[in-house]
């Protein structure tokens, strides 16, 4: 594996990061070291999420959505975090009782090491969050009428066909989605580099910060993909507008709901709805 990496093309020092990881005698990476590096990087990302107030921002978006789902008669309310990592978003929401108690919080990821820490952290603080090694959309599909799928910093990993497939499957498996990610702008790559140099110690986290800023989807890309994949839903990109100096709101969120819920969700969002790009509301 290491030989393949060394021969291949990598960007922004990725090769060096992988080569620095301990290898076993058979040439494969040491799984424990990889897990430890991933956990370290995710904890640094957790710090960044905390500094950028991801928790309160999610709360102000999710609370009206769940209120609307409840009003529409959904019995089982579920929030599923796709690619939850160490589960910061859900644990924050639980610790601050940001959503009604009957909203079930489920984190889904495929990495057992990250899930292990997420579970241990939730248990240590007595937080009612469940973490599962599973496909988030399959979990949502168990009770689609009350399921909301979220992700933080993950949607730029889905590109082209896989982005379309994700959004299309979401529209069949859930009632709403909120995908939070870095907002691309002229300042984002430079800002991400500077910020990750200042804040991050783990080389993988520094690398990921810059590459994520470069790979992040524009609001237009997200909106076009969403509308094509889920015509029965209404979408808007919260804070999708890129101003002259985009340093206050450096993240944007693709917000989507089933079309019949759009008016009610918008009304419950109040002034927040005005920040939905492009129309100041959710539209098909």
């Amino acid at each position: 594996m290491l030989e393949q990496v060394a021969k291949g093309r990598t960007a922004f020092g990725a090769r060096g990061i992988i080569e620095a990881l301990p290898a076993k005698a058979d040439g494969t990476l040491d799984e424990a070291a990889v897990d430890d590096t991933l956990i370290g990087a995710h904890l640094e990302l957790q710090r960044l999420s905390s500094e950028f107030r991801q928790g309160p921002r999610l709360r102000e978006t999710l609370a009206p959505i769940f209120a609307s789902l409840r009003a529409a008669g959904s019995k089982t309310l579920r929030l599923i975090d796709l690619g939850c990592g160490v589960g910061y978003a859900l644990r924050w929401l639980a610790a601050h009782r940001a959503l009604p108690d009957d909203v079930e919080l489920i984190g889904a990821d495929f990495n057992p090491a990250l899930l292990g820490l997420a579970r241990a952290a939730a248990e240590a603080e007595g937080l009612p969050v469940r973490f599962v090694e599973a496909d988030a959309l399959k979990v949502a599909a168990e009770a689609p009428s009350g399921a909301v799928v979220i992700s933080t910093g993950a949607i730029h990993h889905f590109r082209g066909e896989s982005l379309a497939r994700l959004l299309e499957t979401t529209s069949r498996s859930a009632a709403a989605c909120v995908h939070v990610d870095i907002k691309p702008s002229w300042v984002a790559p430079m800002g991400a580099w500077l910020f990750h140099q200042a804040r991050m110690r783990v080389p993988l986290a520094r690398h990921d910060g810059l590459v994520s800023a470069l790979r992040a989807h524009t609001a237009r890309t997200l909106l076009d993909a969403a509308r094509a994949a889920a015509p029965a839903w209404s979408f808007g990109v919260l804070d999708g507008r890129v101003g002259l100096l985009p340093i206050v709101r450096i993240m944007h969120s693709l917000v989507g709901v089933r079309a019949e819920l759009a008016g009610d969700v918008e009304a419950r969002m109040g002034r927040l709805a005005r920040r939905l790009w492009p129309s100041g509301g959710l539209s098909s």
């Binding site: 200042a198 206050v248 450096i250």
Partner: peptide
């Protein structure tokens, strides 16, 4: 507000730490 807190982090704390 969350916006002001983020701005403080981006404009003051991050660069000053560096």
């Amino acid at each position: 507000s969350p916006d002001l807190r983020s701005l403080t982090t981006v404009v003051v704390f991050g660069p000053l730490t560096l």
